[in-house]
Amino acid sequence: MDLGVFIQILVWGIYAGCIYILLAIGLNLIFGVMKVVNFAHGELLMLGAYATFWIYTFSGLNPYLVIPLAMIILAIVGVFIERLCFRPIMGTGKLNEIFLSLGLIYLFQNLAAVFWTTDSRSIHSPYSDVSITLGSINLPVDYIIIIVITAICLIALQLFMKKATLGRAMRATSQNREAATLMGINVERMDMLSFALGAAFAATAGSLCLITGQMVNPYVGSIPAIEAFAVVIIGGLGSIPGAIIAGLTLGIAENIVPLFMQYSVGLLGLEMSFSAWKDTIAFIILIIVLVIRPTGIFGEKEE
């Protein structure tokens, strides 16, 4: 196989990984603090993309500058979801979260379809035709911006958790909820905060997808969400480093493995395309990891 092709595909894998990471750290933040999983996280991505779309359409601002606004809007949505839906069912059994999320998926997708129709909406990045060429490798500036934004989000989160009082309180809550309560931390406020941050990260992911040319309709959230869950579970629930490593690994593996399979069956004289196997490969990896380690690579040990 040509090395240039290989490196180019590696770059696409890293880009895909960035979107997964943004979704996955949001899920992990919420899980860390509340010990719940929001299966409707992809719908937050969809709403975030719509927020960016509408603000951009009405204001005409640079779409990248719209992202913070979309983050704030989705943070508010996140707080509402936490208060109205997840707060009442905390501690009533893990299956209930799954069922509740299912309801949220139906609710958000179809509300979006009613309000905004199912037409596909798109916006234009101002930098869409700028790209940097390194030898045979092509790097559109938009992707560099995406990687940079993801890195900024991760660093900002790290600083917040380590330095800020609020962030430290949040970390304490994820480590031990009861102890945190005893220390005078308002854990309910931490729940809201975690949901707000998680939703804001999902909004970032959605907006970045939209700006790089993907179209938004009410159903766009489901596929990236599924991948993000795979990332979270492979990396281990609640583990931020796990999410980063698993996100990049999955992003790259999904792109390389089909190629490798195609090449292998090519040696046997067969011509087959495995690009449609992306999700299948993600889940095979997921199942293999879980068979070996039932709580994921960086997951907490079983009780």
């Binding site: 696409w12 596929i223 792109n255 395309s273 449609a276």
Partner: peptide, 21 residues
């Protein structure tokens, strides 16, 4: 070159890179 992708796919860079080759 014949490449197959999953319905609602959003990332075609890898199959297209292969196709370009």
């Amino acid at each position: 070159s014949a490449e197959k992708f999953k319905m609602s796919e959003t990332d075609f860079r890898t199959p297209l890179t292969v196709m370009k080759a």
